[in-house]
């Protein structure tokens, strides 16, 4: 158990943020993706799990350094949001009443997600950087003559 395993943990954290970013980008890009019969694009969400977090329920038991949890994307699920109905009779996907079903992607929520993802990624990168510089300093131990 040493500083090296921190690199794995931090990169797992960055992987997770990258997956969240892909999903957020897909939601924003598909904000106007419609389909026939009112089947619009459903906004997606990432579910992040780690093996230990699930087994963490036994509170008070010490965790060893080797079993520290590494986050991973467990699944990408469809969000349960209400689609938006817009009156647009000329649209090829419009129903009998001229209503088109648009995905319930909320632009404000999407932008906030982007900020949170970028903060999360930065924090992991910073942790990676701090670990790297500590390791470098340790390797220089005893160099000074």
């Amino acid at each position: 158990m040493g500083l090296f395993s921190i690199f794995e943990i931090s990169s797992a954290g960055m992987d997770v943020q990258q997956a969240r970013l892909e999903v957020a980008a897909s939601n924003i890009a598909n904000a106007r993706t419609t389909g026939p019969d009112g089947l619009a694009y459903k906004p997606l969400a990432v579910v992040v799990r780690s093996a230990i977090a699930d087994a963490q329920t036994a509170a008070g038991t010490p965790i060893t350094a080797g079993q520290l949890p590494r986050p991973a994307v467990a699944e990408v699920v469809e969000q349960d949001v209400v689609p938006k109905l817009v009156y647009d009779p000329g649209h090829p996907d419009a129903d009998a009443r001229g209503m088109v079903t648009l995905p319930g992607v909320d632009p404000v929520t999407s932008m906030l997600d982007l900020i949170s993802i970028s903060r999360g990624y930065e924090a992991n990168l910073r942790a990676f950087d701090v670990t790297r510089s500590l390791l470098q300093r340790t390797l220089e131990l005893g160099r000074g003559r």
């Binding site: 158990m1 040493g2 500083l3 395993s5 921190i6 943990i9 931090s10 797992a12 954290g13 997770v16 943020q17 969240r20 990432v46 579910v47 992040v48 799990r49 780690s50 977090a53 699930d54 963490q56 965790i63 350094a65 520290l68 949890p69 590494r70 986050p71 467990a74 999360g120 924090a123 992991n124 942790a127 990676f128 701090v130 670990t131 500590l134």
Partner: peptide, 23 residues
């Protein structure tokens, strides 16, 4: 101090993990 750094990095990495509790 090494262990502390590991645990801080773990907390940061798991900030969005379902059901994770800070260590």
């Amino acid at each position: 101090a090494t262990l502390r750094q590991t645990v801080h990095a773990t907390n940061v990495a798991n900030a969005d993990t379902e059901g994770y509790r800070r260590l």
